[in-house]
Simulated scan of single mutants.
Amino acid sequence: MMAAPGADILRVGMVSSVGLSAEVTSAAVRAGIDRFQQSSVLDRRFNPLVMALVATPDLPPLAPALEGIAGLTARQIRMLRLAGPALRACLEDAPPGPAAVLLAGPEAFPGGRPAPVGPVFLEHLAAQAGVKLDLARSRVFPAGRAGVFLALAAALEGLSARRYDRVVVGGVDTLLDLYLLGTLDLEERLRAAGIFDGFIPGEGAAFLLLARPGSGRTPLSRLVSVGTAEEEGHRYTTAAPYRGEGLDAALKTAFAAAPGGPVRTVYAGFNGESFFAKEWGVAIARHKKRIAEDFVIEHPADCVGDAGAALGAMLVGLAAMSLAEGRRPSRCLVWAPSDLAARGAAILDRE
């Protein structure tokens, strides 16, 4: 899927285990700081799980308008508390009027459980953040880590078609869910004693305010292109072998829409598992002409853990801020894979 020509990234809002703002998170990641700590959740061996969580007292309480709503799960409530301040920060000083939000959320985990974020979540998010949203033109992408790239592609198409003057793209997730953690523990996917090929469960939220180039505001950086694809042989399928070609296809689309110099910085969606290394190996081998030999690679999950559907949005936000601050060489490639089929990549540049 090829997205329409680029957009300006005007502002970033973020909440992570290492910072309650985009600026603090960016500084912490640059410094290599993490907040990996033993949690109160025990694994099947009765050892505390190490997680990367935002301290609960640092999160705002659930908005009074949402208290007592039937059906809100603990995971949904925590996601609202994570997303509210990040969305509000993203919309600070934004032009008046309700904004459309294209939001990446968690995947529907195999086993028949529904995705925890649907359209009604956006209504709840507006109440939690205390902002007005254009709900009719907003949308949820329940596709995990790569979901933000599906949202970015939709945003670029909508900006190009002038359905949006501006649009917010983001992602939110928390892996602090007992059923989810229990399933991942049984699959031996979590980092623990004796398990090194695993990840640290995390959480967070990140939002980006996008506008068409020439909006009159100085951007942090330029979103040049987006590519999305599907990996037929993803982790939870037996229908096809895992060849690692989904990420290659996403990069092919992103590079095709981004003529110009080579990538000098890569923000990688590694989460600590070796599973996704094959895809990156295939992709870099096939696109080495578009990536500088001395490129710098960043993998922020080393600091924030695997923040699920928030991770892709955090990567894009961190890349945009690093370009704005001149701390990383331009241009940037950002990519992330989901546990299921979705794969995505984006090219960012300075103005």
Rank of each mutant, 00 (worst) to 15 (best):
G111F: 03
P142S: 11
L125W: 14
G118P: 09
A129G: 06
D134S: 13
A143C: 12
A108I: 03
A143Q: 15
F109H: 09
F121G: 09
G112T: 05
F141Q: 06
A127D: 14
E107N: 08
V120G: 11
A143G: 01
P116F: 00
G118M: 12
A126H: 11
F141C: 13
K132T: 06
R113N: 02
V140R: 07
A143T: 11
F109L: 08
A129V: 12
K132F: 06
P114D: 02
L125I: 05
P114G: 02
G112A: 03
G144P: 12
L135I: 14
P114E: 00
F121W: 15
A126L: 00
A143E: 10
F141M: 14
A115R: 10
K132N: 07
P119I: 00
V120P: 15
Q128P: 03
G130Y: 13
A108G: 04
V117S: 05
A143V: 06
E107K: 01
R137N: 12
L133W: 03
S138G: 06
G111E: 02
V131W: 07
A126W: 03
V140H: 08
P119W: 01
G112L: 07
L133A: 07
A126P: 15
A136T: 08
R139W: 11
H124R: 14
V117N: 04
G111A: 00
L122N: 08
A108T: 04
A129F: 12
G112H: 06
A136K: 10
E123T: 07
K132R: 15
L133K: 06
A143F: 10
P116Y: 06
A127S: 12
G144Y: 02
R139T: 05
D134Q: 13
R137M: 10
P110Q: 09
R139M: 15
K132P: 02
Q128I: 05
V140S: 00
R113C: 00
E123S: 15
P114Q: 08
Q128A: 13
L133G: 02
R139F: 00
G144R: 10
